[in-house]
Design a protein around this nucleic acid. Structure first.
Lengths: 390, 390
DNA sequence: GGGCATTAGGTAGGCTGCTTAACAAAAACT
DNA sequence: AGTTTTTGTTAAGCAGCCTACCTAATGCCC
């Protein structure tokens, strides 16, 4: 008798890519024999994990049956928790997104945010209904450093929390699935690797510039978190022109690169005494004026781009990525790209490719979907042998 | 019949740690049954990879036989190619060093260096003789960036080569074993992880400060090379006070951190117009005067330590290591440590542990031994199933 | 020194998870 | 209609382990 253990996993793993396959195809893909594949497929159909998906006609020989992942194999939900917006998405086990929603963040503090997140997850599960089976995993993207326990996070100023706090526990009480928490920038990096510009890139960095600034690093396809979950905290880079710590107000040890976020850009804007025409009141307006050719606006944008260039040059000297993806509300503005590239080329001995995010606002959410799917699939593969095996 | 395939590898892998083991011990270690272990051991003894190592007396019960790796299982040789010195070491498959030698580097250029290296390898193999079996692998440590092909390297100014050059091909003609080439700083990092201060540390950095400066990064136990083999090239870090590229003479794009090497320190020394007492003519003398309390010398050492601190702070902002090991002729001087630590603590939000190298001058050589051993062991494990299997 | 407890090592038989070989079934091609 | 081609099933077998049981050889205790 055949296992449905290691071979079952191989077959299921092959079918998780959502492409239906015939048994001979599965045999050559897994390099198992056809009898073994038949046995495994029979068991997986019995368990309800895969289903018949019609036959293939038109070629000589007996018609083979296609098999694919059962639609009821389960689904995952991802949440991107931002200071301004909450985003939710749901996808089936093959990764096809079947629900999306966006809401303004109402209220601050872990408790209120958790409550709103739980409601959004509930509306996602309601929308999906029973047709996709059960909810297998929830991926949560949030700004701030995630501790080693995978539950606590700190430095999430955007969410109105300064100290360490726990977003997971209040969620677990209201959600019937394991929850994976990860930093939003790290997830944006994984998102770009899954469905963005870093498709086949093993070693790259995602530079997110929004209200603040942060970098997500991927090495040989796996996330670099650092010993304290602080890898990619480039706000703490000592850069040329930066003011030594202790001589700065407010942000603790954060260095010059912190000024590259929207806060910093607006501060630089305020510092300008005169402005030709109407003074921009947001970073978007500043970029619009720069695009329209207002010299003062172009100056600020150039200065910003140089900062980002120095940040990337530092990353190259340490990490030497093959590609750097620029993202975040500020960072993904294409106006920055030429000066960023020039600056990096001037400093780095082996300049990486530099692109703006292919996923835009959805990068972190896509990454959260990815980690949720990964975890759910791994659990599914383990579960194949677990229950009893037959 | 038992495989000597997967189980054979498990047994051999257990015995590679050089600790002799009895068959019951092997059984519990590999979680295989005693009959299986007996069968596997019989085959490995037949092949000549392991040998009887006496019996254990003194405990109740039948006396068990110890087995260990055969002394004739082979050996590896490591070479550390430096601008001033060549070092060679040989070790048996269990990692016990049984030969060491040092020579001044005579002549420059790939050709001459390769010839001298080949002679040293030959003297190592002669010293070892036939008693350890055959030479299985040679590990070579060299300054400079190793290309993706694992053969070519560039930027090895210390060896009198500027452009890319190939040290491996001329060696292969004179050495009867596969050769592994790796950057000396990367190898120093691996050395510290194998037999130094980073024993159980998964994510750390080795900062080498000698003539130049370079960093070796280890993430989850594996080397971070970067997309162009340029990870850890911290000479290119843009730091506070650094002069933009193009405004500097000589070293291309290299930034301020380059001044942290011995060249830079001596340049700073020369820039001082007056000096109390006899002006030091080497970095060693400078440190000696600083230790003796000469204020000007202390100033220079402090400045150097601050540079290193900023470099490490940059690495923390990007990579967030758990530990940083200071090495190299300049870097391992303990006089630097307090100021380095203070500077890092001032800048980094999560300061890593900082230690001076436990292996000193031998760090790179130890790392070269390690990669040679790793490669030789992997090949040995593959070979167990290869030849025929019985 | 003899019996007993304890541990090592060997043998026999059996089970699991595959394999290959052979065959039956069902389509396209001629 | 017959041939070719591919799919799917069945039967038999084998590799690589395991368990159960047995024998061998020691230390310990009286």
């Amino acid at each position: 008798m055949v296992s449905v253990d290691s071979s079952g996993r191989m077959v299921l793993a092959a079918l998780l890519d959502s492409v239906p396959m015939t048994r001979p195809e599965l045999a050559s893909r897994t390099s198992l024999s056809r009898p073994t594949i038949s046995e495994v497929v029979r068991r997986l159909v019995e368990i309800g994990l895969i289903v018949d998906a019609g036959v293939r006609r038109g070629r000589p020989g007996r018609v083979p049956t296609y098999y694919r992942l059962a639609p009821t194999a389960g689904y995952v939900v991802a949440v991107d928790v931002g200071g301004d917006n909450l985003r939710v998405a749901a996808a089936d086990m093959s990764g096809t997104v079947c629900f999306e929603q966006r809401q303004a963040t109402r209220g601050a503090g872990a408790g209120r945010v958790a409550a709103q997140v739980a409601r959004m997850i509930a509306s996602a599960t309601n929308a999906v209904g029973e047709q996709l089976g059960r909810l297998r995993r929830v991926g949560v993207s949030a700004p701030g450093a995630v501790h080693a326990d995978g539950r606590t996070m700190s430095a999430a100023r955007n969410l109105g929390e300064d100290g360490p706090f726990d977003l997971i526990t209040p969620l677990e009480a209201r959600v019937d699935a394991p929850i994976v928490l990860e930093n939003n920038v790290n997830l944006a990096a994984l998102g770009e690797r899954w469905r963005g510009h870093a498709l086949d890139v093993a070693t790259f960095a995602f530079l997110a510039v929004g209200a603040g600034i942060g970098m997500g690093l991927v090495h040989n396809g796996e996330l670099v978190r650092g010993a304290h979950g602080a890898a990619g905290e480039v706000a703490y880079l000592p850069l040329p022109g930066s003011v030594p710590p202790g001589q700065r107000a407010g942000r603790g040890k954060a260095q010059l690169a912190d000024e590259a976020g929207a806060y910093g850009v607006l501060a630089a804007l305020d510092a300008r005494r005169s402005w030709p025409g109407t003074r921009p009141s947001s970073v978007e307006e500043l970029f619009a004026q720069a695009a329209a050719g207002v010299p003062a606006a172009r100056d600020l944008v150039e200065a910003e781009a140089r900062q980002l260039g120095l940040t990337i040059a530092s990353a190259c000297a340490i990490f030497d990525p093959e590609l750097v993806v620029l993202g975040g509300g500020v960072g993904r503005n294409p106006l920055l790209l030429p000066t960023v590239r020039d600056t990096v080329n001037a400093y780095a001995p082996f300049p990486p490719r530099i692109e703006t995010s292919a996923l835009g606002e959805a990068a972190s959410l896509t990454g959260a979907l990815f980690v949720a799917l990964q975890a759910a699939r791994a659990e599914l593969l383990r579960a194949v042998s677990g229950p009893d095996g037959g």
